[in-house]
Design a protein around this nucleic acid. Sequence first.
DNA 1: AAAAAATTTTACCATTTGGTAAATCCACGA
DNA 2: TCGTGGATTTACCAAATGGTAAAATTTTTT
Lengths: 209, 209
Amino acid sequence: MPDGSQKKPSRIQKHNRRVILDAALDVFSQHGFRGATLDQIATEAGLSKPNILYYFQGKEDIHLTLLSQLMETWLDPLVELDPNGDPQTEILDYVQRKLDMARDLPRESRLFAGEILQGAPRMGPHLERDLKPLFDEKCAVIAHWINTGKIAPLDPQHLIFSIWATTQHYADFAAQVSVLLGSQTDPHQRASDHLKAMFSGMLRPPACD
Amino acid sequence: MPDGSQKKPSRIQKHNRRVILDAALDVFSQHGFRGATLDQIATEAGLSKPNILYYFQGKEDIHLTLLSQLMETWLDPLVELDPNGDPQTEILDYVQRKLDMARDLPRESRLFAGEILQGAPRMGPHLERDLKPLFDEKCAVIAHWINTGKIAPLDPQHLIFSIWATTQHYADFAAQVSVLLGSQTDPHQRASDHLKAMFSGMLRPPACD
DNA sequence: AAAAAATTTTACCATTTGGTAAATCCACGA
DNA sequence: TCGTGGATTTACCAAATGGTAAAATTTTTT
């Protein structure tokens, strides 16, 4: 009897949990926690509602499971920021990784955005425990790059915010972006080029003398 | 008998509609359309549910009214971007106006963000009709500034996206920002300084020779 | 193949939700 | 001051929602 069991899951169990989480990601990312319904998730997953509650303790459990799994993926690009690499390259590559993630995992981006937008009621602790230490660590790395004159003197904390904002924008505000760009050739490449130019411009040390 | 009436509204009518819309802004911006309930809005407004439905045709009507009213406010800062002003100043001032709006109208920002996040189901037409023409117009202005060498050659469309993203981030992701910044002195001023430095850096024409 | 365990379905249930009908209250102009 | 129309409340309702109990079915183990 699964749901909260500690036994190793059968293959049918693993399969169904994955199917449910995938369906739930669809629904939660589109309607938010309170706007999503178990019936919707069940229909999307091709299972009955009670069957879903056989695998998860409830709606909240599904949502929390999704957010927990997501956190890892979400932090990964920042983890890879190498203190020993070339500062400009490291930051530009980080921007690129985040942008690629917005393209490849838009549902995850929106799930995350929705949760934060609503005040992070179910993720506050995760942010504090997992994100904050990493954030502080990488801010220190950037601060060091600045102090040694490798990049322009920007506020590290807010620089990271700006990177998150500009990249995730393409997933979270896709509906607006697509209206405004119309049918354009390879918007992702354009976005990538723009962000590269933008961050290159602002990062290059200020004086040319 | 109000709700859809064309008569001029009494002062009590005007007052209650305003109270309801203010309460609804709270609730919708926090829970999204589907997650919000009329009971919540009623409680927040200090009115009974049927009384609310006396002033609005239904939940959707309230939401739509909010979005319509918001659109005007939302476009305003961009409208003010002056083709005849100094390019650098104009853009930096625009950034500042947007940032101030994120600070002063966070609920509105989140309402908008939530609607877009969910695919703009009730606002697609508004975007197409009101936002797109203005967006195209101002992109042309920026393109002209670039062509005459006044600012660095950035993609106008994506530059505007980046301005929106970086400024609205402080309202939409406030829950995350506050966790990561901790209790810091005047985060808004820091954000303002950062954005100014950042956009100054990227806008200044590339070569110093 | 039989027993045991895991999985799925059927039939519910209490609560919440958006919304309505009609009775009542109340402000205000004649 | 009294009538009238706007404003508000009371009492509902049908549908949807999160969730449960237990029977039925399938899978796995012996």
